[in-house]
Design a protein around this nucleic acid. Structure first.
Length: 566
RNA sequence: CGGGCUGUAGCGCAGCUUGGUAGCGCGCCUCGUUCGGGACGAGGAGGUCCCGGGUUCAAAUCCCGGCAGCCCGACCA
């Protein structure tokens, strides 16, 4: 590509309102432009990188035996009524955009479980056709509340989404493992470090799932990581253990109730009992929730910790809480729940150190002082119900957990029968002649997001530094002063043609302009190898090369061979 | 969805307090000199000052109402 003809304008100054270095460089170097909040145009250079990422994704998924297809971005809302997900549109869980057309309401697909289930369900009739995994690379639409970090969080995004269909849970598991392995190959190929972490599934549904987290300063999440044993989990899913502390409780004062009018929040409690010198770490924070079966459960954790709801549980809303005769907002506690049919889930830590605790009194404007678990109350359930913090003990090996800031670059799910039982036609005839629902998995990787993450991971103060595998060009050929030296011009043109013939993709800076401008642009654009052809080199019949990543340099003869440049 | 800030040339910004001819730097066009790390000189093009209403002889500037963008938080497949 001759640079004189490329639609490219580099900017000397950082654009306003860029919130990350990688994104600012993508704009300065002319790869992308923002059209509106969270909506981007890929200029020719940016599209080249996007296409290279897509090619790697295709290569690895094809190798894993998946088949590419293309579904429409637009789908009728009736399909989403079938799965029940249309009820959640417009909420933060599923910010789908819809379009009213003449044929009714359409959904601009935020993800494609419904469409693919309907499509593959229609094609698959027999177990003989299974397993099958399909994928597509396509634009997705999400009405993001707050787009951020350039291509990392957008309203329109290029995504690769794959879906597996199997006869049984074992098949699903095998397909899942294949997909995870393929995704890891993709990350290795684009030179990003991704860690699969156990996560919760949110609006997609299903049980087992992993997020592929790339550590980055522009990460929007943290995951818990144990360097000792390799345990990884999203903070929404991470567990931890607590070692039991022995305590002599026989002389602890009996439980007593204290009137605490107007004391609602933990801050209120701390203030109210300040005179008694009871620390927050000796208090219990208790909240009411509904579990996956819709039953009411009180979750109790140490006062200074944040409650983590298990997957499928929801916080009880204020209305339901006020209406319930056994619960009193601000005074939810441990003792006396059973008589109201409420079960008690207690965090590990409260068991490790059974008391005495200060907690709500389960009566209006009342708190309990000196509660001892095991003496005053028995929990129905014990588990890790707090959001992990750095330093908590790894659930596997008790090593100290770290929290790593990172971007979610891909997400894989074992969906099971979640969609195939709700949607019509998603079944097959098994060997024994019975009709069975399809066991599904789904696997999403953010292709345009990867571009943003790559720019953030691979740059320096001068500009972008693309890994070879995704760079827009292999070589960036710069001629110096060719406009006033016809021999140089000819030599540059020849070299450009020759390199292109030998299979290199070459960006040829044939523009007029001072060396400083050309060098600065070359650094900014980040092509892996820069070639400089000047008058001095021409005399000696050589062209200089310099590697962008480490400034390694050398010369090759103008007549070749050029293998050194590969 | 709450709180804060911003909207002026392609890009980055000043001007607004105290109303009166719309500016600077970069970029862009022409000519000349220069040119192996963002050159210099001369000349030039380019604006619904976010939108609508109000006050005023007069509004980029003051007032009211919108819209958009950014930041913090909430949320996040």
């Amino acid at each position: 590509m001759r640079m004189s003809q490329l639609l490219l304008r580099t900017l000397r100054e950082n654009p306003a309102d860029t919130d990350s270095e990688g994104y600012a460089l993508l704009v300065r170097a002319g790869y992308v432009r923002r059209l509106s909040s969270g909506v981007y145009t890929f200029l020719p250079l940016g599209l080249k990188v996007l296409h290279r990422i897509e090619a790697i994704v295709r290569r690895e998924l094809d190798r894993a035996g998946m088949q590419e297809m293309l579904m429409p971005a637009l789908s009728p809302i009736e399909l989403w009524d079938q799965s029940g997900r249309s009820a959640r549109f417009g909420t933060d869980a599923l910010p789908a955009l819809t379009v009213d057309g003449r044929g009714g309401t359409y959904v601009l697909g935020p993800t494609h479980e419904e469409v693919v289930t309907a499509t593959v369900g229609q094609e698959v009739e027999s177990y003989r056709q299974l397993p099958v995994t399909v994928y597509q690379i396509q634009s997705k639409f999400r009405d993001e509340a707050r787009p951020r970090y350039g291509l990392v969080r957008t309203k329109e995004l290029v995504m690769c989404d794959a879906y597996s269909f199997d006869r049984n849970p074992e098949g699903m598991q095998a397909s899942y493992e294949k997909a995870v392995a393929a995704y890891l190959e993709i990350f290795a190929a684009v030179e990003l470090e991704a860690t699969p972490v156990v996560a919760q599934s949110g609006a997609i549904g299903g049980e087992v799932n992993h997020e592929f987290m790339v550590p980055s300063v522009i990460g929007e999440d943290h995951f818990a990581s144990c360097s000792a044993c390799g345990y990884h989990a999203n903070t929404e899913a991470a567990e931890r253990q607590c070692s039991a502390q022995t305590a002599e409780l026989s002389d602890v004062a009996p439980r007593r109730q204290v009137a605490t009018p107007g004391v609602v929040t933990m801050d209120d409690v701390v203030a109210h009992f300040a005179a008694d010198e009871i620390a927050l770490t000796n208090m219990v924070k208790a909240i009411a929730a509904t579990n996956a079966d819709g039953e009411i459960v009180v979750i109790a954790v140490r006062g200074d910790r944040e409650v983590r709801l298990p997957h499928g549980w929801d916080l009880l809303d204020d209305e339901a809480l006020t209406a319930h005769r056994g619960l009193h907002k601000g005074s939810i506690g441990l003792v006396g729940l059973a008589s109201h049919g409420i079960s008690l889930a207690v965090d590990l830590e409260l068991m490790a150190r059974p008391g005495p605790w200060l907690c709500g009194g389960n009566a209006a404007d009342t708190h309990d002082v000196s509660v001892v678990i095991g003496r005053d109350v028995e929990p129905d359930l014990v588990g890790s119900f707090v959001v992990v913090e750095a330093g908590d003990a790894c659930p596997n090996c008790a090593g100290a957990l770290e929290l790593v800031r990172s971007v979610e670059a891909a997400h894989t799910f074992q969906l099971g029968l979640q969609y195939s039982t709700k949607m019509t036609g998603a079944s097959f005839l098994d060997e024994d002649g019975t009709e069975q629902p399809l066991w599904m998995g789904c696997y999403g990787i953010g292709v345009s997001r990867l571009l943003g993450v790559l720019a953030e991971a691979h740059h320096d103060d001068k500009g972008l530094v693309w890994p070879k595998s995704v760079a827009p060009f292999d070589l960036h050929l710069v001629t110096l002063g060719a406009n006033r030296n016809p021999d140089l011009q000819t030599a540059g043109d020849l070299l450009y043609e020759q390199l292109t013939r030998e299979g290199f993709s070459v960006l040829y800076d044939d523009r007029e302009g001072s060396p400083g401008v050309k060098f600065a642009d070359a650094d900014l654009l980040g092509v892996p190898i820069r070639l400089v052809l000047g008058a001095k080199g021409l005399e000696r019949g050589v062209v200089e090369w310099r590697r962008r990543s480490d400034d390694g340099e050398g010369e090759v003869s103008l007549s070749g061979p050029f293998s050194e440049l590969r």
